[in-house]
Simulated scan of single mutants.
Amino acid sequence: MKTEVYGHFHPDERQFVDKAWEWVTHAGEYHETKLTEFLDPRQGFILQSLVNRHPDVIVRWEGGHPEAERKRALVAPDYRDLDHEDMELKVLAITSGEQKFLALEHGDYMGSILGLGVKRGKIGDIHVLEDGCHVVVAADIADYLSMNLTGVHRIQVSTEVLPLSSLRNSEVKLETMDLTVASLRLDGIAADVTRLSRSKILAPIKAGRVRVNWKVEEDPSCALKDGDMVSIQGFGRFKVLEVGSLTKKGRYRVQVGKFV
């Protein structure tokens, strides 16, 4: 079965596939349940694909709201009713009396939380609001974060742990950009979006700091297509919204949405 499982996924994903297949088989064969950490959409796709292959296993997903990007999964035997199971999620509400606080961005919050030694898998979506920030977190680290997160980007903050029902989620805002590019290569499009030179964008790509659809991509020539999500550490994220027709000079018209 292992070879059959691996056949559909990238070799780099083998470690996660192994782990996810173990959750599935233990649920199906030994009647165990597994509550995962927060999974990104690619990991979620892999786990759901594996669950679909086992007739005796079900999975429940929860990330705080229907459009959540990062979610926890509860993998269980198919006779279990998972609707009322505790998914062990809390909301960390972050506020501040300082005016500069309102200028903080997603990356500022993420950096400060991870700087406390918390693993990424314990943190779900981060919702930057007009008057603060709501972070979906694993229940077992909520109190630790509340006690230890006293500042974000050198701004003093206050925190409170709330139930998941109190989550206020932010709307995803995209700043659209219309580009004309010589090719659909990752380095070319990323350079235009970040306004860096082609040579400067190569450094984060080759250092493994760029992800395409949540997978590390170190090949600058990787071709992007409609729907691809690209994140560049330190420069934010963008999505390829549409690859349009060619111009008379043979260049591609590409519309991207930059997350703001």
Rank of each mutant, 00 (worst) to 15 (best):
G236I: 09
A203M: 07
G257N: 14
E22Q: 11
D56P: 00
E218N: 11
C133G: 02
G236Q: 13
L162D: 12
G121K: 06
T159C: 11
S96V: 07
V137G: 06
E4F: 02
D192I: 03
P77N: 08
H8C: 05
L145Q: 07
Q99H: 04
E4T: 06
L241M: 11
L74S: 08
K215A: 07
E105S: 04
S197D: 09
S96C: 07
L50G: 05
R237D: 15
E130Q: 14
V172K: 15
K2M: 12
S165C: 04
S197Y: 02
E85G: 01
E37Q: 11
S231R: 02
N52Q: 11
T3V: 10
R53Q: 15
V240M: 07
V210P: 00
S96Y: 04
V256R: 04
G151L: 10
F45S: 15
Y144L: 11
I205M: 10
F259E: 13
P220F: 06
G44T: 14
Q255H: 05
L104K: 09
L174T: 04
F9T: 10
E22V: 09
N169W: 10
L174Q: 10
D56A: 08
Q156R: 13
G250C: 05
K122Y: 05
G124P: 03
I201K: 08
K90F: 01
V172M: 12
R195Y: 01
R120D: 02
L74Q: 13
E98N: 07
V256H: 05
S49L: 06
T33G: 03
E160W: 02
I113M: 07
T25S: 10
P66E: 15
V260M: 09
N169V: 12
V256M: 10
V24P: 00
L92K: 03
L162S: 03
L116K: 04
V240D: 07
G208R: 05
H54T: 08
L114D: 12
S231L: 07
W23D: 01
L50R: 01
G97F: 03
V212I: 10
E218T: 14
A27V: 01
E67Q: 11
D12C: 00
V136E: 11
R80W: 05
S146K: 14
R251F: 06
P55E: 14
D56V: 04
A68K: 11
G7R: 14
I46C: 06
D40A: 10
H10P: 03
M147D: 14
E85C: 05
A142M: 07
D140A: 04
V51K: 10
A73L: 04
K2Q: 14
R185Y: 02
N148K: 13
I58T: 15
V24K: 04
E105K: 11
Q48N: 13
V152I: 05
K258L: 14
Q48T: 11
W61T: 13
Y252A: 09
L74D: 12
D86H: 03
L114P: 00
A139E: 15
M147R: 13
E13K: 10
D219L: 07
A138P: 00
A76M: 05
I94K: 09
M110L: 15
H153D: 15
S158M: 12
R70H: 09
S146L: 01
D86R: 08
M229C: 06
I201G: 08
A191G: 03
